[in-house]
Structure formats: structure tokens, C-alpha cells
Amino acid sequence: MKSPAFSYYQAKDLADAINVKKTDDDAVILAGGQSLLPTLNMRLSNPSVLIDIGNISELKEIKVDDSNLIMGAMCSHSQIMNNKEVNEKLPILNKILSQVAHPAVRNKGTHGGSIAYGDPAAELPAFAVLVNAEIILSGSDGERIVSAKEFYKGLFETAINSDEILTSVKYPINRNGMKLFFDEVTRRHGDYAMAGLVGSIKQNNKINEEINLVFFGTGDRPNEAPKTCEYLLKNEYNYSDIKNTLKNDIDFASDISSSSDMKAHLSAILVGRMMKELN
């Protein structure tokens, strides 16, 4: 199928993009296009204009300081995978991104696009929630920061206002003793997961002090699991208990890849893998 007609605007800079966005409710930001163009090609959406933010150079920067890694919205998945500093400071990102789609898609797909699109089965939104990254939004009223935990509101729904653009994502790094985990279950390499988990454990003298779990592919957004984390702080891993607790935490939702039962089961399995790997 071919896209419906729309016009195209190449934004010169951020202010320009915001300006156009503000004046047209049906305008849509075009980042890497790897999620947007399939929906257009299938005529699932009908925007008036695509605002291409691909030429705004400030959105392509990766900045690193002692405690943060700041990823410009327009950094492609490949750019991030090939960045030495990222690979040193936050090596798990490389591991995560190598499971996102395939080389040609990663060459175009952007970090900001993935976070902003908020596909519930996508890896990056879950990771952002896990480390409670700061999501930086620019709009006509200036810049604001939304924590990742507050960012995802529902199925493909985020805190981005209609006149706002996601400009960067700020990840905390060098967090003492925090060990990170990522795994997912897919039927084919590079597919969206049937269920996936990013998790972290902070230990003191081999005692777990803090556990965080965020699941993807399981519900309408990245799913945190506070009750399960609490359970794990007090108890050894036990498949049935974890599965039951997870069901209290998460409203598992079936999709074309798997049923809600399957997702609950896989989530419990992934927690088991994490406890084994990180302990």
C-alpha cells in the first residue's frame, strides 16, 4: 500500500519544529520513521504534515558526564551501539539494542523515537523506566523534564503535549553497586518480545537491598512490578509465587504474539533467570 498524501516540513532547528507543531494539530514528528512509515504505508494514520527533525544537529549528540549519559533524541540505534563511551559507561544498552530489529532498521530508528512512540513491547521505554531516566521535552513554553516513571500513560500514550518534542533522554550511570539485567523471549531474533524484562539489583554484602523489575511486551506500557520486587527482597525465587505476585502487579494483556497467560508465565521465568544471573 502507499501512504495517503501529506506535506513535509524540514525543521531548521528546534524552535522551528515546535512552532510548526504548535500550529497544526495533525502535524506529526518524523524522526527515524521506522515506526511511523509502516503505519503510513498501511494507511493507518493520516497526518497533515510530517515535521522532519532529522537535520537538527543538537538532537544527534551523545553527552557523557560523571553521573549521566545524555542521549539526543535523533541518535540512531546504530550510532549508540557504536559509541565507545556508551559501551563503556552503560554497556547494557548495546546488549539491549542488539535485540532491537535489524541493522538497516537500527541505522534509521532513533532513541527519541523509540522512547516517544512508547510501543509497550519495545525495549528502550522499559529500560528508561527501570533507571527512571529523565525525559526532556521542549515546547512553546520552554523545556520540562518528566521522569520516565511518569512518562508512560497508557497504550502508545505519553506525557508529551501536542506542541512538544522529545529532545533527549538522560540516564543515570555509575550508580554504585547497581547490577543490571536484560532478557527477552522472542520467537525470532529482532522481533518484538512476547515478554521481556529489564531489572536491577543493588546488593550489600551479597544481600539484596533493592530490586527493580520492568517488563515489556506484557501490558499497555512498560510494566513495573513493585509487589514482586518486595517479595524477592524477602524470599527466595519461587516460580509459582512469583507468577501469582506478578499477576497482582501487572494486568497482562494478550497480543498477536502470545496470550496473557503466556506473558505471565514468561515473565516469571525471566525473573528466575535474573535472580540466577545477578545473585
Binding site: G33, P38, N41, S78, A101, A104, V105, N107, K108
Partner: peptide
């Protein structure tokens, strides 16, 4: 035309991309 098959890959500035998704 949905990015899944890779038949349309071309190089843009030396990187492979899906030409149906650009």
C-alpha cells in the same frame, strides 16, 4: 513496504536502510 523483509535495502550515505521506510 513495512520494514520487515529487507528486500528494499539500499545504502544511504554508506549505511543500509529500508528504502520503504524513508
Amino acid at each position: 513496504e513495512q520494514g520487515a523483509c529487507g528486500a528494499c535495502n539500499v545504502l544511504v550515505d554508506g549505511e543500509s536502510v529500508r528504502s520503504c521506510l524513508m
